[in-house]
Design a binder for these strands. Structure first.
Length: 402
RNA sequence: GGGCAGAUACCCAAGUGGCCAAAGGGGGCUGACUGUAAAUCAGCUGGCAGCGCCUUCGGAGGUUCGAAUCCUUCUCUGCCCA
């Protein structure tokens, strides 16, 4: 894994090349290989997220030991601090952060969405106010490509506009802008050792998704991302859109579902033909005291773990589970010790990487359908009922106050 | 023995006549988190029953339409003087 491939070496696959190895008989799941300048990525793959050139609380050595095939980092955040030029002068992002495996950089498109209120969008680009010091900055498609080329990531993303799922008129506008930007990004992109992926938008509307997929594929990218999902729409909507979109994307190019990452979503995403995932969930949940188990999420703060001598997950091979009890992890979490974040994140990332490993094997063995069925039968998803109950408690509290 | 200050919910601590079941912290409990403005955020934390009632501010008694708040007394704590 992570074996170095020189894209300039004669006969070596170009950066971003994708080999489709096996296709599942009962679903759209597929097993493939993605070639990058910094290593070969087996797909389907999950990428932990290191927004600020670090997967929070983990060292590159941890990531290597966990077997992370590729990680994600972020254009907007690194551009603001420490500055892409700084990283460029220090030898590029890989050298700067000490991670020599594949890196995918997001374009800042997600920040167009998440920094709503600090930004203004026009057809030409986005004007941001820095969330750090309030200073004004401008991102155009060309600028975003330039930054990512300076960073030297293995896979760069086009600038896109991620929009809330509920407003069709706005989604249409954002989608068309995303198409214009995709074309300009492609025209501006020069690095041969870096692959540039396009991003399909269109919210929860099947006709818009189809239009977006058509527009993007006509431009000819080495890989296609599906953006604008898991941003507040229901799970049913997300899966419906995936069912609809992946068949419209070229079979011989990798498909990347951006920002998705809960265990159940990974399984269902793979079943719908997704090859690449990334998500902050394992690291953020870890820092906030939640860990994944085959039965669902576990909140380590719960009083019932106060004297629990078991590991998070019986039989788990991660460092955390092999050495520490729930009681100890609960103590660290409640005492807000730094080690709690590290150990919980370690377990969570391991959990997802291990799930992907098992998924890849099962596709090779032709048993993905069984894995999918067994995993989903066991894994308890936090359901709408719980949310409704929370909402009811909140309403009652408000009523009591008035 | 005398003088002064104090005792408020699990802890610390506001409140010195009605707007007080009682501010604010802390602690405790619960929940959320999906291309990271997140080591973050939200709710609950006297009891019961669904907008009301009941029992609370060291104990007892009193003043008042009404007391955590005023008076008497007792208990305890701290400081000072003998």
């Amino acid at each position: 894994m992570n074996q170095l491939v020189n894209p300039l070496r004669p006969g070596a696959p170009p950066a971003g090349a994708f080999d489709l190895l096996t296709t599942d008989a009962a679903s759209l799941a597929r097993r493939g290989t993605l070639y990058t300048t910094h290593g070969i990525v087996p797909t389907p793959v999950f990428c932990p997220v290191g927004t600020q050139a670090t997967v929070k609380s983990l060292t590159p050595r941890d990531l290597q030991e966990l077997g992370a095939p590729m990680i994600l980092s972020n254009t907007y955040h690194l551009y603001l601090r420490p500055g892409a030029d700084v990283i460029g002068r220090l030898g590029g992002l890989h050298t700067f952060m000490g991670w020599h495996g594949p890196i995918l950089t997001d374009s800042g498109g997600f920040q167009v969405f998440s920094l709503e209120g600090l930004r203004q969008v026009s057809d030409d680009g986005v004007t941001f106010r820095s969330h750090i010091d309030g200073s004004e900055h401008r991102f155009t498609p060309e600028k975003v490509v330039e930054i990512q080329e300076t960073l030297g990531s293995d896979i760069a993303m086009v600038l896109d506009e991620c929009a809330r799922p509920d407003d069709r008129a706005y989604i249409v506008e954002a989608m068309h802008r995303t198409h214009l930007w995709a074309e300009r990004c492609l025209a501006a992109h020069t690095r041969q050792d870096q692959a540039l992926f396009g991003i399909v938008q269109g919210g929860i509307y099947e006709d818009l998704r189809a239009e977006s997929a058509r527009a993007l594929t006509s431009l000819g990218f080495p890989g296609y991302a599906i953006g604008g999902l898991s941003v507040g729409e229901s799970k049913a909507d997300m899966l419906r859109i995936l069912d609809h979109v992946t068949p419209l994307l070229p079979e011989d190019r990798p498909r990347y579902l951006m920002g998705v990452g809960s265990p159940e979503d990974l399984v269902e995403g793979v079943a719908r033909g997704i090859d690449i995932f990334d998500c902050v969930l394992p690291s953020r949940l870890g820092r906030n005291g939640s860990v994944f188990t085959p039965a669902g999420r576990m909140n380590l703060r719960n009083a019932r773990f106060k004297e629990d001598p078991a590991p998070i997950q019986e039989g788990c091979t991660c460092y955390t589970c092999q050495h520490f009890t729930r009681a100890y992890l609960r103590h660290l979490t409640i005492a807000k010790e730094l080690l709690a974040s590290h150990l919980s994140t370690l377990h969570n990332v391991h959990f997802l990487l291990d799930l992907m490993l098992r998924i890849r094997h099962s596709i090779e063995e032709g048993t993905f359908a069984d894995l999918r069925q067994e995993f989903l039968a066991q894994y308890q998803v936090v359901d709408e009922g719980v949310r409704r109950r929370d909402k009811a408690i909140y309403k009652r509290a408000v009523r009591a106050r008035n």
